[in-house]
Design a protein around this nucleic acid. Structure first.
Length: 424
RNA sequence: GGACAGGUGGCCGAGUGGUUGAAGGCACCGGUCUCGAAAACCGGCGUACCGGCAACGGUACCGUGAGUUCGAAUCUCACCCUGUCCGCCA
């Protein structure tokens, strides 16, 4: 969420930000309306507060007179009338503020200057690592995985529905191994605090990170509509210090968590969804950081590097893509996608998305810090990134490590966790 | 799930329907004193919004929301959360 002052004082920058996302035409009416509502709001506040001040003074006078044994019925009548007027004006004010907030929720974050303007055609590969394996003769992971008995798509569909995966035997151990490898790396080498989070969160948390109110259709909602299954550990991790004022010495804060992630993927069907490529429940290790505003850009590079390290350890060729403004997520100011090459599918698969949200999420979630004693609190910058999402990593392992006899070489860093050198 | 008890500033804790944004204490910050420190003493010490160049003024906030009242931290109702006991349970 943007600061209302943005609309008031930096409307040009806001419009330019929307133009870079290719959304200005669509959002111009919203912005114009917000400018009007902002004026209305301030006028309404002044009107209400003026009357409240009068009422407070009169009420005190009533109290004084009563104490002195004097009559105050005239003042009481006058104050009652003021009260009715206040109630009416406040209702109007609330309507204005409701409309204002609704409008603010519709405006995405402004991307950083380094982000190319335009749609996804302007996405830029900023670097790549490793050499993708030749596509010829490589079977897609769903064939390999089922042949080796690592996972069972049909039975997953039977017990839960399409898009739910059952991993079995070495496949199940592979999942557990990925969790351990990633958490060990980030906690031991990258300095993250390990956190184990609930996978059910409340409405306030979902709103704090921006999944609600806009994306409720993508969520699994519990029966009482108060609980939601998390679509990513970003939600509980980022909300951990919601509505708090942190001490500057706590920054930067770095947390990581494994969690299952639940996504209804409403409306998503067709190609690109086979095998493990797009499922309703998957596992992921997530990194979240809070930092001071001036560190935001550097912290994004750092966090992205941490995610890349996992791919390097696993020996999986990947590229880092800087998303163009139009392809950058709603709340994000700058995003790097990590894409691993899938020779069996012949495509680059997104396995991580690393973003800095500037103060956009923090404002919404009320995460602040005090730079110096006595100074005003200010919003932190929040960042997050997957490091990594398991299913596509598993797909890449099965395709890259594939041998002529159908067996799969286990990446060296994973062997001590899996207890096997080769899956056969 | 049931029965009680309770939710006040960073923490502890007082609070009578009316000059209470809220006593007192702790912590913290500045100062005096000291060679230095401690102690003592003096002062400061919440957040947000509105107006104002500023000084400053105004408004709101005592778990959340609604209500009663001229006026609510204080009274009423609902909800949320915490504690204790009972029941159930991995």
């Amino acid at each position: 969420m943007h600061d209302l002052k943005m609309v008031r004082d930096q409307a040009a920058a806001l419009r330019d930000g929307m133009r870079r996302r290719g959304m200005l035409d669509q959002l111009e009416p919203v912005i114009a309306r917000l400018e009007l509502l902002d004026r209305d709001r301030r006028l309404a506040i002044q009107a209400v507060e003026e009357r409240k001040a009068a009422r407070n003074a009169a009420s005190q006078e009533v109290g004084r007179r009563k104490k002195a044994g004097e009559d105050a019925t005239d003042l009481q009548a006058q104050t009652r009338a003021l009260g009715e007027e206040i109630a009416r004006l406040e209702t109007e004010l609330q309507e204005t503020e409701g409309a204002l907030q609704k409008g603010l929720y519709e405006i995405p974050n402004i991307t950083l200057p380094a982000v190319p303007a335009g749609d996804e055609a302007q996405n830029t590969v900023v670097r790549s690592w490793g050499t993708p394996r030749a596509v010829d003769g490589v079977k897609p992971h769903w064939e390999v995985g089922e042949a080796l008995g690592l996972f069972d798509l049909a039975r997953g569909a039977k017990i839960s529905g399409s898009g739910f995966i059952v991993y079995r035997g070495a496949g199940a151990r592979l999942v557990r191994s990925l969790m351990n490898l990633m958490l060990d790396l980030h906690t031991r080498d990258h300095g993250y605090e390990e956190v184990w989070v609930p996978v059910v969160v409340n409405r306030a948390s979902m709103t704090g990170t921006g999944q609600l109110p806009k994306f409720e259709d993508d969520m699994y909602v519990l029966g009482d509509e108060q609980g939601f299954l998390i679509p990513t550990a970003e939600v509980p991790l980022t909300n951990l210090h919601r509505e708090e004022i942190l001490d500057a010495s706590q920054l930067p804060m770095a947390m990581c968590a494994y969690s299952p992630c639940f996504r209804r993927e409403a409306g998503a069907a067709g190609k690109d969804t086979r095998g493990l490529l797009r499922v309703h429940e998957f596992d992921k290790v997530e990194l979240v950081r809070y930092c001071r505003p001036e560190d935001g850009a550097a912290q994004l590079e750092l966090l992205t590097g941490h995610a890349e390290q996992v791919l390097q350890l696993l020996g999986l060729p990947y590229r880092v893509v800087l998303l163009a403004a139009g392809d950058t997520g709603f709340s994000s100011a700058m995003t790097y996608d990590l894409e691993v090459f899938s020779p069996g599918v012949g495509k680059w698969l997104e396995v991580s998305s690393c973003s800095v949200f500037t103060d956009y999420q923090a404002r919404r979630a009320g995460i602040r810090f005090r730079a110096e004693k006595g100074e005003k609190p200010q919003f932190v910058y929040t960042l997050n990134g997957s490091a990594l999402a398991f299913p596509r990593v598993i797909a890449a392992i099965l395709e890259h490590g594939q041998q002529a006899d159908g067996s799969v070489i286990v990446p060296e860093a994973l062997r001590r966790y899996v207890g096997l050198d080769v899956l056969r």
